[in-house]
Computed example of a mutant assay.
Amino acid sequence: MENGCNLCGVNFTLHEEGFIYLEGKSGDGLLEAIPGRIENDKGVFIEYHSMAELSRQIDILSLLPEADTFQSTLLKKLEEPFTTYPYREIRARISNNETVQIIQSTDFMGYFQPIVLLRDNSLFAYESLLRDPLGRVSPGQLFRVAQETGMHSLLDQKARETAIKSRGGKIKNGIKSFINFLPSTIYNPEYCLRHTFQIVERYGVTPEDLVFEVVETEKIEDIGHLQKIFRTYKNQGMGVALDDFGEGYSTLDVMVELQPDYVKIDRSKIMNCDSDSGKQEFLKNVVHIARELNIQTLAEGIERMEELQFCKDIGMDLAQGYLIGRPEAEPAFKETALK
């Protein structure tokens, strides 16, 4: 199995009683002081009979200086096969069990935020956003818990599938969908993206109508790996984008090296750009370089007509934000909104 691919689709069940397994050694003898333990040559199984007892054991184990170096899992029976994960992820899964179960079992729904062509304010695309249909958890909490529990690969895969499925009967051909992805969840692009490409084929979506964008929560640490991901998407006829450009890690050098199809410029650079000379210089520079590289520029977070007009005046291609339209369960953009 490819490295990390065991993270996709693996169910986590919190049993009312069973065993927590820790693989590793403690130098201070604390593990040996816990009753109900069964040792093997790599670590120990520690039995529990209630959620309260499991919580107490987790509290004790977390006192170990080496705790975050352990591999761990939860078992209902000793003889069942198992896969281990970092102990900190198991601890996070226990403390966030309700959200973990939502990540595993929910058929999420897609929301749509419009993106317009600035030259005439016509609809160009919708960004696809993930939502819990029952409103139990916010998108921010979903992705935070997924990251802490090691379930970000599963959630990222579900988000891509939801975005592709949600187009059906709602977005006509020729209108693009911008879909977020986490590069750290794609270990081997040819292998890990196979599921996504199968979904595209299953639902009859035109590949050219899809644009996959690197989300803001991850720093670009491995340019070569991201280039491979971009190349894999492009080989399937899909577009690629850098999201939140200009915030934190994103630099003009990154844009030149990766040469995406789109650069989405972060809200922090767009807000009050009509009156901020520093932001104006940055935006004009991005537009100039992007035009030379045949990259389309997109202004994120447009909330004022003055911002929209400035971005249009300097030659930016696309825009999105609350002025244009908020995320909705149904695509709802009306071109008269900007008249």
Rank of each mutant, 00 (worst) to 15 (best):
F310W: 06
R267Y: 12
V211I: 14
L298P: 03
L193F: 07
D68I: 03
A332C: 13
Q141D: 14
K339E: 14
V145S: 04
F12G: 09
D313K: 14
I295Y: 03
K334T: 02
E2P: 14
L318E: 01
R291F: 02
M271W: 05
K312Y: 03
M316Y: 10
N40C: 15
M1W: 10
P133C: 08
L14H: 12
D243P: 00
E127M: 05
T69W: 04
F333N: 00
L226Q: 02
G315R: 03
E161Q: 14
V145C: 06
I324T: 02
F143E: 06
I164N: 06
T251N: 06
L64F: 08
E2T: 14
L74G: 00
P114T: 09
I324E: 01
E300Y: 05
E80H: 10
L14S: 12
I164K: 05
N11F: 11
C5I: 13
T251M: 06
H152Y: 10
L75I: 09
K284P: 04
E23N: 09
L30F: 06
D266V: 02
E32M: 11
D59A: 12
Q236K: 14
N188A: 11
F45H: 14
E330W: 05
E66M: 09
K158A: 08
L293T: 07
R291Q: 10
I60M: 11
E148G: 03
Y126R: 09
L134V: 08
E47A: 15
G29H: 12
I115L: 08
